[in-house]
Simulated assay, not measured.
Amino acid sequence: MKKSLIALAVLGASGVAMAQSSVTLYGVADAGVGKVKYGAPAGNDANGKNQFIANSTMNNGNSRVGVRGVEDLGGGLKAGFNFETGLDLDNGNADAVFWQRNANMWLGGNWGTVKLGRTLNPTFYGIAAWELTGTANYSVVANTYSFAGAGPRNNSQLSYKTPDMGGFSAEVGYILKSDNADRAKWDLNLIYANGPIGVGLSANKTKGINTNYSLGAKYSFSNFALAASYTNANNAANLRRRGFGIGGSATFGAFALTVDLTRDTKNEWTGKKYTNGVVEGKYALSKRTFVYGAFLRLDGTNNYGIGVRHNF
């Protein structure tokens, strides 16, 4: 259960103002067993063998703990922060760089939100608007095209996000060249999420590398959802990988089944076109805990895992 605390209220000296400030502790615990051939974790985990899995390609998500806070400044203006670090349930270690998942602060109001620091980038949120597994570690779209070539996070990002306008929103982020190996970068999304429809356009460009983009849409009806996408991604060597994705999911009470596929139309990353796919099954034990099993066929490798995830 999320634990909301009245931040520093015991100080008393600024009682009225501090009563409008809060800090929340949250996190995820995710562990299981499986075979990870693609992107196997380092350390004492053996590549491609049955093993305990934590923070691997075949976990639903990475274990983490974070703290976020918000202060109501009045007049519709708020300020906040988010710090988050990963935890390895295999050995209890935290990330080598503490708070490397999130380390940012923001200022927001009716006009939108400005955020500064390390954070999930606009490209990630644009893809999350339609991706069927909830951007799980074994997402076939994310693993095939690396979130449109940008990965999920940016360092030193300065960003602005619009308020929601009838389901429409946009976010643009910028990294100064002095903060990115002398190569400035921009990153943006355009999202429409209203009722059964979710559409997201993501685009990003680093100086000297061609523009990356991804366009996808999801339509939900009754207990089912269908999604389709097209992605063009370039790596640091300016090699291109592009292709389309198509998939569907169905929910039957507490059980959900998802099948998602990608097909390369061009692949200079490996020199060979692949059809990749993921099959995922999840069973909700409560609103915060579920068990899952997944099989991921990725660039000629077979990966699978079963596990349990708890959100708090």
Rank of each mutant, 00 (worst) to 15 (best):
N104H: 13
M105C: 10
W106V: 08
L107T: 06
G108I: 08
G109Y: 00
W111K: 02
W111A: 05
V114T: 09
V114L: 15
K115G: 10
I127C: 04
A129G: 02
L132A: 00
L132P: 08
G134E: 03
T135Q: 11
A136N: 04
S139V: 04
V141Q: 14
V141L: 13
A142H: 09
N143F: 06
T144K: 08
T144C: 06
G149E: 01
A150T: 15
P152K: 07
R153D: 12
R153K: 15
N155D: 15
N155G: 14
S156M: 09
S156N: 15
S156G: 11
Q157A: 15
L158I: 15
Y160S: 11
T162Y: 02
D164Q: 11
G166D: 00
F168H: 05
S169H: 02
A170H: 09
E171L: 07
E171T: 12
E171K: 06
G173F: 04
I175H: 00
L176V: 08
K177N: 12
K177P: 00
D179R: 06
R183P: 00
A184P: 06
A184L: 08
K185C: 05
W186P: 02
D187S: 11
L190F: 12
G195L: 07
I197R: 09
I197S: 05
G198I: 01
A203H: 05
N204Q: 14
T206V: 14
T206C: 04
K207I: 07
Y213A: 09
K218A: 14
Y219L: 15
S220A: 15
F221W: 15
S222I: 13
N223M: 12
N223P: 06
